[in-house]
Simulated assay, not measured.
Amino acid sequence: MDLHLEKKNVLITGGSKGIGLEIAKRFVEEKANVSIVGRDIEYLNKAKDLLGNITIYQSDITNHYERSGLIDKYLLDHGHIDILVNNAGGSNGGEILETPMEKFYEAFELNYFSVVDLSKQVIKSMKKQKSGSILNISSIYGRESGGKVTYNNSKAALISFTKALSSEVIQYGIRVNSIAPGSIIHESSIWEKLSQEKQMEIETFLDTQIPAKRFGTPEEIANVAVFLASDQASWIVGATINVDGGQSKMNF
């Protein structure tokens, strides 16, 4: 299937490793003009060496001023943006009663407020061209219990935001959707570390919690990402698609 992504201007946050890096790779394969954002210049440079002709931006997207500077610089460099992938995210804290409030604020700044802010900024540009696609990377745990509460809460807010924003901007030709990954393994994931440290427990987890009996891969998320971002998914608006090997407990 030709996704018609050639020469599309794509910006991916958290694009220097893991799922974000694989999403960037797939867009490169589709001959898009790919730019990635990350905090660590070493990882950014490694990604550029791997992917070739991409643009890198070092930025801390938990900082409002850096987010504004990022989009201003991107539009100055590229003129316009066709696709924004809000992939950057992370987990912190523990049990609710043991987690200080600042950890909740930190989780929401990274997983939620950064997405709201960046999306609002790029929509100003997308409205002028009457087209665009915003893709948010959420989690199956934004819909059910499991994992850390700060992460779950912020990802639940992200799913709700995806639907709300999509309803506002589809009239301008801008589509907003989300992917909810299950447990995905890659070299910088917690699952990779746990697989080495607690092999028996992980084998039990895979056997009892994931019907597919294995972890998902970044490639399997990236394949869905490029499709959802493309015009081939033109009638998918405000959706959050589970990509989880059957792991989610939702049945509706």
Rank of each mutant, 00 (worst) to 15 (best):
T208W: 00
E42C: 03
E192F: 10
E220Q: 14
T217R: 14
L158S: 11
I170P: 04
E106M: 05
E219F: 01
N45V: 07
L84W: 03
I36H: 05
S248F: 01
I83A: 13
N223M: 02
V115G: 09
V237I: 15
S133F: 02
D117W: 07
G216F: 01
I184L: 10
I236K: 12
S188C: 03
N251I: 08
L70Q: 05
T62G: 06
T208R: 13
R67M: 11
M101I: 13
E109P: 01
A229R: 02
I185Q: 15
A24E: 00
A180Q: 08
E98F: 04
Y141G: 03
T217K: 15
T13W: 10
I83F: 06
I56R: 09
K48D: 03
R26W: 00
Q247D: 10
K124G: 15
S189W: 00
E22T: 14
T150R: 06
L44C: 13
S145H: 06
I221F: 07
D2T: 07
S234R: 15
Y57L: 03
G132Q: 04
G238M: 03
Q247R: 11
I19K: 08
K46V: 03
S178Q: 09
I12K: 09
A212W: 00
S91V: 11
T150W: 04
D82C: 06
N223E: 08
S59H: 00
N251E: 06
Q58N: 12
K17D: 03
A239G: 08
I36V: 14
V122F: 05
L97G: 03
K120R: 15
G18M: 07
H80S: 15
S114Y: 08
K17G: 06
F113V: 08
N45K: 15
F108R: 03
P211A: 07
I54L: 08
S167Y: 01
Q247I: 05
I123M: 14
Q199P: 02
L97A: 09
L51G: 13
I23Q: 03
A107K: 08
S167R: 14
A164I: 02
G20E: 01
Q58R: 14
Y43M: 08
A233K: 09
S59V: 11
K46N: 15
K31T: 09
I123R: 08
K25Q: 11
G142M: 01
K193F: 08
K128V: 15
E219N: 12
N177R: 10
Y112D: 00
V224S: 15
L75E: 02
A32N: 09
V224P: 01
E109L: 09
N33R: 13
Q171F: 01
E109N: 15
I83S: 12
E197D: 15
L76C: 04
K198Q: 13
I140G: 12
D207I: 00
E66G: 11
H186Q: 06
E219R: 12
R26C: 09
V10T: 10
L75T: 10
N251R: 11
S154Y: 06
K128F: 11
S35Y: 02
D231Q: 14
D244W: 01
L51Q: 07
G216E: 02
A225S: 15
G15D: 02
K128T: 12
L158R: 07
I202E: 00
N86L: 12
D2V: 04
G245M: 02
I134D: 06
G173K: 05
I56D: 07
